[in-house]
């Protein structure tokens, strides 16, 4: 906000003589702010206010139904020192992020490259591969996952062919989280589509030139496709990481909102939701939310720093 409030203080000397500082600022920056106008209205009108209120609430004991009372940093202190569920949900969430994001991205990229060619039935394949993502919040997913990963589910019937007696994957605290990772990978549709759009934007003449030089498909992928795709890879990585940190629905659906068995699928936001709406501790939940925001922001900032070394923009 300081940018808006103090225009033209630093570079005032370089601007033409007659115009005032405000005019100068507008001439140099006006177009950018005009294009951002809808976003600014939305941000200041709809987003920033509620976010700041939630920040305020994180310092209160707000219970949804009575007036919030200021309790200082007590929520944060409790989270840091006396909350076993916070620690458990952190472990679950980090495991989920670290496993599901790379796997999902790799899978999505693989399928996108496989589908990025002229062939019969392509739209149908793309649509079918997107289908699992469409079913994201349906009860059917919960039933399906039970049928796949319960003790007498399809996975164990398959393993039985090899003499393996598998556990009830979905309801065993040692394995239940991995069934959610598989769910995340299975719902790879969105990054796949974005990869596809990215692949489509790579100019054809570059491949044609490479082909003439005798470069193999494999080499073309590493020398042309991947470098030119890095902005999209970067986007998918950042967005999927943010999404995975905030993941709520998969655990809510599969564990019936419990995060069980034994907190093994207690995603961070599921815990937050339980605190807010199950146990009437919206103040505490707000503190949890802001801690999550800081963690995600750190991760994202790190991604942007690293991007300088591996993301290639045309500009």
């Amino acid at each position: 906000m300081s940018t808006l409030a103090s225009p033209g203080t630093a570079k005032a000397t370089t601007a033409p003589k007659s115009a005032g500082p405000l005019k100068r600022f507008w001439r140099n920056n006006g177009a950018g702010y005009m294009f951002l106008l809808p976003w600014f209205i939305g941000f200041f009108g709809l987003t920033a206010g509620p976010a700041l209120v939630s920040l305020y609430l994180s310092f209160t004991n707000f219970d949804l139904l009575t007036d919030p009372r200021w309790i200082g940093a007590a929520n944060y202190v409790r989270i840091a020192t006396a909350d076993a569920k916070f620690a458990a949900s952190m472990r679950v969430t980090f495991t989920y992020v670290l496993l599901s994001v790379p796997l999902k991205l790799a899978f999505a990229l693989l399928v996108a490259v496989a589908l990025n060619r002229g062939m019969r039935g392509l739209p149908w394949y793309r649509a079918i591969f997107y289908l699992p993502s469409l079913l994201g919040t349906s009860v059917a997913i919960a039933v399906l996952w039970r049928q796949l990963f319960a003790s007498n589910g399809l996975v164990n019937s398959f393993l039985a062919n090899f003499g393996i007696d598998g556990p009830s994957w979905i309801s065993n605290p040692g394995t239940s989280l991995y069934t959610l990772v598989i769910l995340a990978v299975w719902q790879f549709g969105s990054p796949m589509i974005i990869f596809l759009a990215g692949l489509r934007q790579i100019p054809q003449d570059m491949y044609e030139a490479a082909s003439l030089d005798g470069a193999s498909k494999w080499r073309q992928f590493w020398k042309i496709t991947l470098p030119l795709l890095t902005p999209v890879v970067f986007f998918n990585a950042v967005v999927q990481t943010i999404d995975a940190f905030k993941a709520f629905t998969p655990a809510f659906i599969i564990s019936g909102g419990t995060g069980g068995p034994i907190n093994s699928t207690l995603f961070y936001t599921l815990y937050l939701y339980q605190e807010a709406f199950g146990f009437f501790r919206m103040g505490y939940a707000s503190a949890l939310a802001w801690i999550l925001l800081v963690i995600i922001a750190l991760f994202t900032a790190f991604s942007f720093l690293s991007a300088r070394y591996w993301v290639h923009y045309d500009d």
Partner: peptide
């Protein structure tokens, strides 16, 4: 702008 992606919506819901 990116920061607005990061706050879980459950806590901004009521405001």
């Amino acid at each position: 702008m990116l920061g607005t992606l990061m706050l879980p919506y459950h806590v901004t819901l009521i405001p």
